[in-house]
Simulated assay, not measured.
Amino acid sequence: METQNFTTHKIAVVIPYFNASKEIVRVISKLPDYLHSIIIVDDQSPAPLPKEEIEKLINPKTKVSFLQNEVNLGVGSATKRGFKEALKIGSHLIIKIDADDQMDLKYLPDLLNPLLLNKCDVTKGNRFKDLKALRSMPIVRRIGNLGLSFLIKAATGYWHNFDPTNGFLALRAEVLKKLDFSKLSNRYYFETSLLAQLYFEKANINDIPMPAIYGDEKSNMKIWKMPFVFGARLTNTFVKRIIKEYFLYDFNIGSVYLLFGFPLFMFGLIFGIWEWIYYAKINTFAPTGTIMIITLSIILGFQLILQAIQYDIINAPKPKK
């Protein structure tokens, strides 16, 4: 689709802002002229938002809105407020861009085209398909993102989408309207909570390969904090998804696998540990029958859990062909 065709659609860009006064100016300078509106949400940043510089760079035909949170609530809260404003003004497509200039805006058409061609409901950037750009990503961040990406896949159910922590995304307004904003996280867990909400709407998400840009700015999120910040939340998201998807909203073969597999595996594991301690204390070998019960329970339970995982992966939402 040619760039000029984008002007027939109301396309809004939402930018949550916090301590990126220099970077946001570069971001604004790279935005295309076909945008209908730009919404910048200042999350009580200590570094003032350079409004005058921004207004000079924006196309006169593009509407710009400056919103400000009364208190610092986090990037998720700022994004949610921007989304609500975009829906309020009747936007058709809504793009979320960070203010830190780590997103290559040349890929905006690649994000928009699949949505306009009705191939998917959401598009997200994927930084892991460009090996050259991947090498430029700091090694600690690369390892952290890879591990976190796998855990988020399991928690949200979007097994076919890589780089789920990428905040460069675009959504159809119809899909965004269906979401319960009160269940979206206000801080760093925002992207994951968004995916968790989209899963139950069976929204199709398309990955768009693109590089990331890393400058001299420092992230507010420390790598060592990630397991503590995300661990409990990912577990909570995963458990809620499994219960809702396989036992509340539906009951299918995956439910049967889980219903028998998990209890069998846990029985074999706990009973096995208990018996091992008991017979170790009395310094004797466990009976063959006991060993067989433990072994069969663990093997059969594990196989059923693997079948449940396979079923979950096969039935995960996929982009339309």
Rank of each mutant, 00 (worst) to 15 (best):
D101R: 09
Q102N: 09
L179S: 07
W159R: 02
G167Y: 00
G144V: 01
L169C: 08
L179M: 14
P114M: 04
M137Y: 14
L146G: 07
Q102W: 08
N166L: 07
D110A: 14
K153V: 05
R127K: 11
P138D: 13
L112P: 03
M137F: 08
D104K: 04
K119G: 08
D180K: 01
N186D: 14
Y189T: 10
Y158S: 04
L131S: 11
P138M: 04
E174H: 06
L184P: 00
H160D: 11
A170E: 04
N118S: 12
N118M: 00
P109E: 15
Y188R: 05
L131E: 15
K132L: 12
A173V: 05
E174M: 11
A99F: 10
E174L: 07
D110M: 10
L179A: 02
G147T: 01
K124Y: 07
Q102E: 14
F181A: 01
E174I: 11
S185W: 01
S136L: 13
P164S: 06
K183E: 01
D121R: 03
V122I: 15
G157A: 09
L146A: 14
H160S: 14
V122T: 02
L112M: 15
L169W: 11
I143C: 02
L115G: 03
A155V: 03
D104Y: 11
Q102I: 09
L117H: 09
Y188D: 15
L134P: 05
F181Y: 15
K183H: 02
R135M: 12
W159F: 13
D180H: 00
D101T: 03
N161S: 12
V175H: 05
A155S: 14
F150K: 09
L131V: 09
S149R: 01
R187G: 08
A133N: 15
S185N: 13
D121Y: 07
A154S: 08
N113T: 10
Y188E: 15
H160I: 08
T123G: 05
M137N: 11
R127G: 02
N118E: 09
D130N: 09
D104C: 02
T165H: 04
W159E: 07
L117P: 00
M103L: 05
P164W: 06
I143V: 10
A133H: 13
N113A: 15
L131G: 07
L148D: 00
W159A: 14
L151V: 02
F162G: 12
K183L: 00
R127M: 11
